[in-house]
Design a protein around this nucleic acid. Structure first.
Lengths: 333, 333
DNA sequence: TTGAAAGCGCTAACAC
DNA sequence: GTGTTAGCGCTTTCAA
């Protein structure tokens, strides 16, 4: 950097336009009470100097930053990335800048990312797929930072998530409608805990609702060795519900590698509605989440709490998912 | 917010531990020159108060923020998202916090996102797939903000990108090796310009190198109506190179919808190496970019310029891509 | 080894 | 309408 280089400050603008810095500030903030003449002069000076206000200085005096943080499990995961993109979009439209922290689901990374956000004094934080580490949460609580949980929840924070029970219900209903009676459920160890539990519980309930008996051995919480153990011998499920589209897609790989065809031998329903599920080569029947609505409401909830204060009781929004029928499910033969 | 709530400041810590705020600052920054005793007392006070330094105040006096900005075309695009994730990771490891701006390739959004970054006084900016709007770039230049371009380039900025020519060369060589002579190239209108041009030019060169004649009608810059026009009648290509994996995946859809099988009727090579290409149902032969190396070097270049100054001439790094053979290419019948 | 004091660049009373 | 002034919370000389 050229050693003499210094960004123009509000004082430079004031000097050039021959007014005081408060007047410059008033003009720039649109505070009113300035004559059209001086406004012109100030604006001209801003232009010629290429002046741009320093957010740090403003943040310091205003005690707010117009920054929000987003903590995400894995940006390489299509659903997460899509959500982050939409959150950034809505936040930006309302004048907030977004800081993203990717945690890879590791609590220690989560803690350090959140620590960084708090040093920046972000006005609020959106937690996608939060691991639920108590220490981290209590820290947030102690700092009285507005938080919105997306796609997961806790009773002491605002949250917006898809209605997991309704979603899983749709999936099971769809399969039962196709004549399936032996239905399994596949989850994954590295998955946000509340959602994981909710979907698994919803699955059991849905089966019972249809007069079917949930079978523990068809509900592995890990898809890794799933095919070998469940499809080895004995009675096998004719249909599967996967906790997420990601799991479903991996499952297709594993099933087909083991010589089982989808949907001929096994029908499969995913959950989320990621883009690649729509490819004709994948054609994944799935429970689609209303991603943009999720993002919109998350931002609305968060900014509401930021701008209107903390007092109100936590709000828990549940959005309705929709069944998207594609080629991975078929009538039981 | 409880009206009486105020975050503890360095003064509170100083008061509680009975020292001056400079001493607190010295302890916290590890500046040395403090006795073990006072250190203990200060640290204890920090602990009990839950004190956390205010980045805005620090930024203001230090005139640097330890913030970097990342401008990305589309986080919903797997390759971009993966890159952002890795950049955030490397930056975080070196003490920098990342602000992401998604631009959807729209120059006006790009400008406003960059404007926001500059107000935050980010120490540097990584531009992924920059649209190349001159006004925006000159603004950056005027502000003397360190910039690194990733996967695209300009001669006046540091950049790190894959060697497009080598990559396309590998693709063509692979196809020629399989006996193909009528090879087409498919691009897309909404794509970062320098990369787009470079890959197209490299394609022509590669064909010439193998003694083949590039044919304009087989090089649409838009994949939308590609299948109809090129595979309608007359002589058709037996193999295609796609400018990106995304395009390749879409092309598979369109080709198969038109009754053409991949690779039976057409062989197809993509570019990028996104994860879904590895699924057995997709099995996309592709030119894989070294994504993590790209991210690592981008961060290294950027932080180097930030921490060591602007003087050095722009550095242009070109990384080698690798051919990944999968099922979308086959010998010409 | 510690403290006092001068800012960093801005906003927001309040005075003129 | 416009200017003066007192901070916001921190770092960083410079003295003691």
């Amino acid at each position: 950097m050229t050693s003499a280089f210094r960004r123009p400050t509000i004082l430079d603008v004031a000097a050039l336009s021959g007014v005081s810095k408060s007047t410059v500030s008033n003009v720039l903030r649109g505070a009113g009470g300035t004559s059209a003449q001086t406004r012109e002069r100030v604006l001209a000076a801003v232009q010629t100097l290429g002046y741009r206000p320093n957010a740090a200085a403003r943040n310091l005096v205003q005690r707010r930053t117009n920054l929000i943080g987003v903590i995400v499990w894995d940006l390489a995961n299509a659903f997460d990335a899509d959500l982050v993109k939409r959150i950034e979009h809505h936040a930006s439209a309302r004048g907030y800048t977004t800081i993203v922290g990717n945690t890879a689901g590791r609590p220690e990374l989560e803690a350090s990312r959140i620590e960084a956000l708090l040093e920046q004094r972000v006005d609020g934080i959106a937690l996608l797929d939060f691991t639920g580490d108590r220490a981290v949460l209590s820290r947030l609580f102690a700092d009285r930072v507005p938080v919105v949980m997306v796609s997961c929840w806790a009773d002491y924070a605002d949250s917006v998530a898809v209605d997991d029970q309704a979603g899983i219900g749709l999936a099971v209903e769809h399969l039962v409608g196709l004549g399936h009676e032996r239905i399994g459920y596949v989850s994954q160890p590295f998955m946000e805990a509340t959602t994981k539990r909710a979907r698994a519980a919803a699955f059991e309930r849905a089966l019972l609702h249809h007069g079917l008996r949930p079978r523990g051995e068809w509900m592995p919480s890990d898809d890794a060795d799933f095919v070998g153990s469940v499809f080895g011998d004995g009675e096998r499920p004719t249909a599967l519900v996967a906790a997420t589209d990601h799991i479903a897609v991996r499952l297709i790989e594993r099933l087909e590698a083991a010589g089982l065809a989808v949907p001929r031998d096994v029908s499969l329903v995913g959950f989320d509605g990621i883009a690649i599920g729509a490819l004709s080569r994948i054609a994944l029947t799935t429970i689609a989440q209303p991603a943009d609505e999720l993002a919109r409401q998350a931002v609305a909830l968060l900014l509401n709490r930021i701008e209107r204060g903390h007092d109100a009781a936590p709000e828990q929004r549940r959005l309705s998912p929709a069944l998207v029928r594609r080629g991975s499910t078929a009538a039981r033969i």
